[in-house]
Structure formats: structure tokens, C-alpha cells
Design a protein around this nucleic acid. Structure first.
Lengths: 226, 226
DNA sequence: GAGGAATCGGAAAACCCCATCCACTTCGTC
DNA sequence: GACGAAGTGGATGGGGTTTTCCGATTCCTC
């Protein structure tokens, strides 16, 4: 039984040029996923990396492998966010900051937005981090409910629901009305509060024209010259 | 200047077999769009209709033409909804019922969900109905604000934002957790209220396992045997 | 610096989708 | 019932993506 090679083992046994190309592919994939989401053609990534398509496939036989490697660090940030939220002395402040933060991560990286509403049973490392974050999340909810600031009927599953909703707004508005998601999240946070403070100001609604542009934009897939 | 033929003119001048096939295509498109959204291949529609692909294209030269014909009646229902909401003696009840109703229409028909977050500048009839509904919506908002039950900083653009968010939840959960959208909408409606009644019960959150299944389901495009 | 293995990159096969063309069929009329 | 126009469906070309294959190249060791 061959012991499963750790990522480091695999990397160190590579020839130097292979390792260099591996890094190039990862870097290219990171930026392309960020801009266009996870469904971008593999050829686009290879071209941006300046390597042949075969090189990409040799290193990352499936799209999931590539996604797993690219988002390992993003998932670290995801786990960090819940850790920091738990460290906040004010549970409610920790709760709201956490939600705003990961929703902002979705908005800043279309690939990440896709990632959070998907599940890759084969990408073990990713799923492990997701599980870690989920446990922290349960704890954060408990604290916020104990403090009486989070409504008692709030469910842990309300977060994935919010992330799905947020992803919908982000992909629909795209670049045309980029901060629209903030208003959705603000509304939801007010609703999550046990005693809603209606006094807080909402982020502005998108301009009608910007929204119209976004809705037209969706009808045609942009050529996406790379 | 040739007067634009009305749909009836166009239909009546068709040979009987052509008219029959036209209806078959419309019927097939209606059900396929409903199940799979607007981006389904034209060949799938033709096959389901039992006609050749050329027949489909002759009758509906572009996808937009087909969409326009299929959703003419759905858009009527959309306009009816706002009319009925305006007739409600209780503006707030009319407001909440309206929102729930069109969100339910999205959930019941994936094609319609796509339609509401898109814009087809060339599909005149559709856009005209959308505009009619929008004017009614402005009126509904004014009434609800006047009655003091809708928060003053509510924006007309909050509806498209909600529809985008709802579309995100619906496409992400799919058949695996079909009523999840209700919880999102309930949260948002409580937030829209000027004086939130936290007493109302929320629709149940989705079961974690159902959500998990939904997230896996997304990773692979279903084969969609037709 | 020479040999051999690892690696490279582009070509190409396999697949799917859109949209058009054209030889054949059906309808409706005279 | 025969003719012409309207209509039909499959084949086809053009564009795109995924994935594999293979001759050429680069690296590392001895």
C-alpha cells in the first residue's frame, strides 16, 4: 500500500521546470477563477499561465483538483474568519462582522462565491475546512443566542441560504452594480436580530439604470478576451 | 409601411399542420423551460415537441422569440398579481402577498425565475408588461409607506434585488430542498416592515442533509434524458 | 557533456450546441 | 386527383470545450 503523498512530497519530487509551471498554473487559475467563476474553460487558464493545455492536465487531472489547490488558502481565510468572530468579546458584533466578512469574500471572488454554494466530495482538504468552519459557526450562534441578541429561531442553515442568495445577487449584478449585495445582507442582519434596531442606515439601493445594465448583461455571455 | 401582423394574423395564415407544430413547440418549450430554465438547448425542445430542429427555427428564429411567445401568459399573471395587490384594502397585506406570490412563481418555474432577472430588449411585448408591472409596483410601495407599515427607506429596486437573491436560492437548492426560498422571503419581509412583528413564525429552515444533497447536485450537470 | 527520463506544447479526437441549407413531403386548392 | 406552394426534418458547417496522444524539448545525473 503506497502511502498517500502529501502535497509537499508531490511538489518536491517535481523537476524544477515542472514546479515552476505548476505555480504559474495556480496563479493563473487563481486570478481567472476570481474574475469569472469556477466554470471558466481550462484552455483560458492554460493560456493565461503561458503553458500548454497538456501541462495543466498533467498536474491537475480534473477541474476539482485544480479548484482544491487554488482555494486551499482562501478556505484558510474562511476558517480564520470564524476564529476571529469567536474571539470577539461582543457575540452579536462577532456574528454580524462574520457574516459581512464572508459575504464580502464572495463578492470579491466569483470563484469563491461558487465554491461556497457547492460541495466537492472528492476535495477532502476543502471539505475538512468547511467542516471546521461549520463547528465554529455553531458555537458563534450559541453565544449570540445566549447574549439575547440573535433571535432564538435562527438556524445554522440560514447561513448557507444567505450565501446562496448572496451568490445570486452577485452573479446577477456583476460589475454593473457591484455593491448591491450589501443591501441584501444588511436587510437580513436586521432580521436576524432579536430586537431589530430599525434606526441603522441601510447601504444604498442600486441605481435603476445600473440594475438594468446588469440584467441586459446577463443575456449574452461576454466574449471574455484573454 | 406594412402594419405589424398581430400574433393572431400570423397564426391564422399558417397551414393547419404548421399551426399544429407551432403549438407543439410552444407546449414543449413551456415545460422544458419550466423544468430546466431558459438556457436549455433548442434541440431538446424540438425533440420533446416531436418536430425537427428546422421547424422550430422557422417558427421562432431566435431564442428570444420563443421565450417571448412562451411567457406571454406568465407575464400576464405577473401583471395580474400587481393589479390584485393594489386592490387589496390593506396595503401591507397586499404588499407582502404580492412579494410572496411572485417569488412563488419563480420557484414554480425555473424559466420564469430566469426571466425576471434578465432583460430582453428585443422582446417588446414582454418588456412592456414588465414596465406595466413596475408602475403598479411603485404605486403599491407608495400606499404601503403611506399606511406606515412599510419602512420609509424601502426602495423599488429592493424587489429586483430580492428576485435575484431568490433565484440564487432556488437554483442552488433545486429539487433537493424545494421550499427553502420561503424562509429567505419571510426574513426579508420582516425586515421590510416598519415595525417588525418578530412574533410571526418563520417557515422551517432546510434540513442539513437536504442542503448537502443540493450542493452536491450542483457540481454535475444532470444528464437530463429527454 | 551525454544519455535517459521527465516534461512540454500543440494537434487532434470526441463531444455538444447553434443555425442554415436543401431534397423530400404534405396541404389546400382548382 | 394533380399541381404548386408551404412546410418538414435531417444533414451539415461553424464554433466551442474537454481530454488524450505523441514527437520534440528540457532537465538532471553520472
Amino acid at each position: 500500500m503506497t502511502p498517500p503523498a502529501t502535497p509537499d512530497d508531490a511538489r518536491q519530487s517535481l523537476r524544477t521546470d515542472a514546479e515552476r509551471n505548476r505555480e504559474r498554473v495556480l496563479s493563473a487559475a487563481r486570478s481567472v477563477f476570481c474574475e469569472q467563476g469556477l466554470e471558466v474553460p481550462m484552455t483560458v487558464i492554460a493560456r493565461r499561465a503561458g503553458v500548454g493545455i497538456a501541462t495543466l492536465y498533467r498536474r491537475f487531472p480534473t477541474r476539482e483538483d485544480l479548484i482544491g489547490a487554488v482555494f486551499a488558502d482562501r478556505m484558510d481565510a474562511y476558517v480564520d474568519a470564524i476564529t476571529e468572530a469567536l474571539a470577539d468579546p461582543d457575540p452579536w458584533h462577532g456574528f454580524t462582522t462574520y457574516i459581512e466578512r464572508i459575504c464580502a469574500m464572495q463578492a470579491a471572488d466569483r470563484g469563491f462565491a461558487d465554491l461556497l454554494t457547492l460541495t466537492f466530495p472528492t476535495a477532502k482538504a476543502l471539505e475538512a475546512k468547511r467542516t471546521t468552519a461549520y463547528h465554529g459557526w455553531l458555537e458563534l450562534i450559541a453565544h449570540a443566542k445566549d447574549s439575547g441578541q440573535l433571535r432564538p429561531d435562527f438556524s445554522p442553515e440560514d447561513l448557507p441560504v444567505l450565501l446562496m442568495a448572496n451568490a445570486g445577487v452577485i452573479t446577477a449584478t456583476g460589475d454593473a452594480a457591484r455593491d448591491t449585495w450589501r443591501r441584501l445582507v444588511a436587510y437580513m442582519l436586521q432580521s436576524y436580530a432579536a430586537n431589530p434596531a430599525r434606526s441603522e442606515e441601510l447601504p444604498p439601493a442600486p441605481a435603476p439604470r445600473a440594475l438594468y445594465r446588469a440584467m441586459i448583461r446577463l443575456t449574452r455571455t461576454p466574449p471574455s478576451r484573454d
